[in-house]
Amino acid sequence: MESGQTLPLPADWRDFFALTKPRVMTLVIFTGICGLLAAPGTIHPVIAFTAILCIAVGAGGAAALNQWWEADLDAGMKRTAARPVPAGRMDRTSARDFGFALSGGSVFTMGLGVGWLAAAILAFSIFYYAWIYTVWLKPRTPQNIVIGGGAGAFPPLIGWIAVTGDITLMPVLLFLIIFMWTPPHFWALALFVQIDYAKVGIPMMPVVAGERSTRHQIAAYAVALLPVTLAPWWIGGAGVIYGVTALVLGLVFAALSIKVGLRVSVPSDGMKPEKQLFKFSILYLFVLFGMLVIDRLATVQGWQ
Rank of each mutant, 00 (worst) to 15 (best):
M1N: 12
Q5V: 14
P8A: 14
P10K: 03
A11D: 10
D12Q: 14
W13R: 12
A18N: 10
M25A: 15
T31D: 07
C34V: 09
I43V: 14
I47N: 02
F49P: 02
F49C: 13
A62M: 04
A62N: 05
A62F: 06
A63P: 07
Q67I: 03
L73A: 13
R79G: 08
R83L: 08
R92K: 15
S94N: 13
A95Y: 08
F98I: 05
F100P: 08
A101M: 15
A101P: 02
L102K: 02
S106D: 00
V107I: 15
G111W: 11
A120Q: 01
A120L: 10
A120C: 14
L122E: 11
L122D: 15
F124E: 10
I126L: 07
I126V: 15
Y129T: 01
V135E: 08
W136N: 06
L157S: 01
I161G: 02
I161L: 08
P171V: 10
L176N: 04
P183T: 00
L189P: 04
L189N: 01
I195G: 09
I202A: 03
P203R: 05
P206Q: 10
P206C: 06
P206S: 08
V207T: 12
V208S: 08
A209V: 02
G210R: 15
T214P: 03
H216I: 15
A220P: 04
V223H: 01
V223E: 06
A224H: 03
A231N: 04
G243A: 08
V244L: 14
F253E: 00
L256V: 02
S257Y: 05
I258R: 05
V260D: 02
G261S: 07
S265C: 03
S265E: 13
G270Q: 04
G270K: 04
M271N: 09
P273N: 00
K275E: 00
F278A: 00
S281L: 00
S281Q: 04
I282F: 08
F289R: 01
F289E: 02
F289L: 12
G290W: 14
L292V: 07
V293E: 12
D295K: 00
A298F: 14
Q301C: 05
W303Y: 13
